[in-house]
Simulated scan of single mutants.
Amino acid sequence: MACSDGDSGTPLVVRRDSAGVQVVEAMRPLWGDSSLWRIDPDPVVDLTLSGTGPAHEFYSARSMKQRSDGSLVIADGSSRQVRVFSATGEFQASFGGEGDGPGEFRSLRRVENAGDTLLALGGGRVTVVAPDLTVVRTFGVDRFTTDVHYLDGGAILPELNRPVLPQDGLTGLVWRPEPLILFDLQGTLIDSIGETRGHEVYVSGEGGFRTAAPLFGRASRIAALGPRILRGSSEMMQVEELDMSGNLLRILRIPDYPLDLSDARIAAERDSILDGIPPGHFFRGVLEETPASRTRPAFVDILVDPSGAVWLELYRGESEQDQSQEWLVLEADGTWLGTVGIPDRFTVSDINMDAVLGVWEDELDVEHPQVLRLTRE
């Protein structure tokens, strides 16, 4: 079945069923060349400027969420603190600090909402925190867990990025799968429900064991959509929707999305990376031999907003950082809306219906956790 908006002979979306899996192919963007959603670069809230003192100073602030009461939560990697602010930016409370005790962190990577409960990830441990910030429990996960996702129904899905080690005996271009494993809020293993493609890495066996990220290397990402899991490997503009048993339910795809790379673009990318490495450095040799993909990754991150719309952060190489950052948006039904531009030097952490949360770095590299207004037309 094809769906058209009547403005073109090309349908917006083609839907079909394949062995019980719904395949949704978006053929063209609804918005055309102009985005109908805009992000205002002037912040509604800036936590660096909304108060004074150490609570409003940030470094390695990696993750920011908004709770159901409107308060803002941010994980500050330097202080190992989870800090809570009012919706208007006043500091309210914090927990954490460096250490191995309950509620402490050797490293702090992410915060995640689990209903009214808060999850904090760091150092291979998940800390479960009550709404009043009382630490309920801490349980261990794989130490190479980079993110945690909460699924409606009470399940936690860690996202892994494990390194390739000498004892693995692997060389060349390696794309090793990562498992999808569910835990409950008690920290009890529920089940292993499948895997992702993992992250590409180049392993050189010449002159000892060395690894590097391949040029335009691809990586898998996951996100949560209610009780469903979204999985994408970035080798094409496609996201798969799974249930909590790992069954494939739906595929959202943009066929023939342009990802080809020219020889000139590949050469510019290699030169840009090598420019930052001094001659004779051992790492320079492995980068010079690292292969490049002939296609660019389709995206580098997946987020889902409260409407069920899927946001895909478009890939930019090291030599493309002067280009504007953009996110491609698919509506919940798979319709390709278009792209939304992100202000320069802003890293998105979460997307709500009328706001985008993240961290902006000023010209002095000072971090500003901000809430930006999102307008949908």
Rank of each mutant, 00 (worst) to 15 (best):
I251R: 13
V286W: 14
P279H: 01
L261C: 03
G285K: 14
A267T: 05
V300N: 02
R265S: 04
I273G: 03
R294V: 04
P297T: 00
F299R: 02
I254G: 02
E269Y: 04
E288C: 02
P279C: 00
F282A: 10
L259W: 05
P297S: 02
S245G: 14
D263N: 10
D275A: 14
P291C: 08
R253Q: 07
L248H: 08
R253D: 06
T295Q: 11
S307P: 02
G246W: 15
I251T: 13
I254K: 02
R284E: 12
V304S: 04
P255L: 07
L249P: 14
T295E: 12
P291S: 09
S262A: 05
R250K: 11
R296S: 13
D305H: 00
L259N: 01
D256Q: 13
L303Y: 06
R284G: 05
L259A: 01
R294I: 11
T290Y: 10
S293M: 12
D301S: 06
A268G: 06
S293W: 11
D260S: 12
T290C: 12
A268T: 09
D271W: 07
V286P: 11
L261V: 01
A298P: 05
A264P: 04
P258A: 00
R265H: 09
H281E: 14
F299C: 04
I302W: 11
S272K: 11
I251M: 12
F299Q: 03
P306S: 03
L249K: 15
D275N: 15
L261S: 02
A298D: 06
D275K: 15
P297E: 05
I277W: 14
R265P: 06
R270A: 07
